[in-house]
């Protein structure tokens, strides 16, 4: 039943289509000829189908964040194309960016670094609305409170500053802020790392709710295949700057094609069995 639905969705054209994307970081010192070159992305090809939750997994340093930054137009790739809703966005002009930016929003891993500690919760959520000049004055306040409640935070806390919230609550704030502009694609870069299991589950539940409410397409980035494996419709596996595998979850779990994917899977299974072995009677 679920598999049927997934195939039906997959039949529709992809929301994002990435083709031959490459990005190289070069660091050089002044007065010195040594260069430090990192090929963060090498010929990446990937598609993100609409209305799905796609997971992007790979060990740290494999280029996931770089890909996400390129998608969110925070980095310019060296070569390749990114097609979004039928437009090539990787080299969009400044005026185009203005209308494109709200459609692709990102939530970062480090929730304390991603929220300005000098801002109150209301100011944090209002920031994108202010920048885009969507609403102002009383309406702005009203919209912020709505957004807070939507992500499960009480509107009474609107005037608390960011560091008074717990890790999970801060992540909710970051999600509310990203939702403020009603994006089409929401990228969550390691947004669940560093949270405890219960909070992770709560945020995943929240994500499921808002996905339906806003008909959002999500890209969930994580280094942990076991975590996202349970909720993703599609899984893309990244390794050393390239996408080595992308398929439905079932396909990836049951018949992984790439050796590295099998390693990742094996790692999650050993950890899971280790858990079981250590806690007898927990099942």
């Amino acid at each position: 039943m679920a598999a049927e639905q997934a195939t039906k969705r997959a039949a529709r054209p992809a929301l994002v289509r990435v083709h031959a994307l490459s990005k190289r970081y070069v660091q050089r010192r002044i007065f010195s000829r040594d260069k430090f070159v990192v090929d963060a992305l090498k010929n990446v090809d990937v598609e993100i189908p609409p209305d799905c939750l796609t997971a992007l997994v790979g060990e740290s340093g494999s280029g996931k964040s770089t890909l996400a930054s390129c998608l969110a137009m925070l980095e310019t790739p060296d070569s390749g194309e990114i097609w979004f809703e039928g437009r090539e966005i990787s080299r969009a002009a400044a005026c185009e960016l203005e209308s494109l930016r709200p459609k692709i929003q990102m939530v970062f891993q480090d929730s304390s670094g991603a929220l300005n500690p000098r801002f109150s919760a209301a100011q944090i959520i209002a920031e994108p609305l202010e920048i885009q000049r969507r609403v102002s004055g009383r309406k702005l306040r009203q919209r912020t409170c709505e957004l807070m409640e939507e992500v499960g935070l009480s509107a009474d806390w609107a005037d608390r500053s960011a560091h008074e919230f717990s890790g999970g609550q801060r992540q909710r704030l970051a999600i509310a802020r990203a939702l403020a502009l009603r994006p089409t694609l929401l990228i969550l870069d390691e947004s669940l790392s560093g949270l405890d299991l219960v909070t992770q589950a709560q945020i995943l539940n929240l994500l499921a709710e808002i996905r339906i409410a806003h008909s959002l397409t999500c890209l969930l980035i994580s280094h942990d295949l076991s975590l996202v494996g349970q909720v993703a419709d599609h899984i893309a596996v990244m390794h050393k700057g390239t996408i080595i595998e992308r398929d439905t979850r079932q396909q990836v779990f049951e018949s992984p094609r790439h050796a590295h994917t099998r390693e990742l899977l094996a790692a999650t299974r050993t950890i899971a069995s280790a858990f079981r072995a250590e806690r007898p009677g927990s099942e």
Binding site: L74, L97, E98, R101, G113, L115, N116, P128, A174
Partner: peptide, 25 residues
Amino acid sequence: TRKYVLASRGFGASDSYVLRRHVLP
């Protein structure tokens, strides 16, 4: 280089906005 400045850019903030709201304070 803080993440919230990057986030602000993602909302389409201009240099002057980032400076005024996030950097100069």
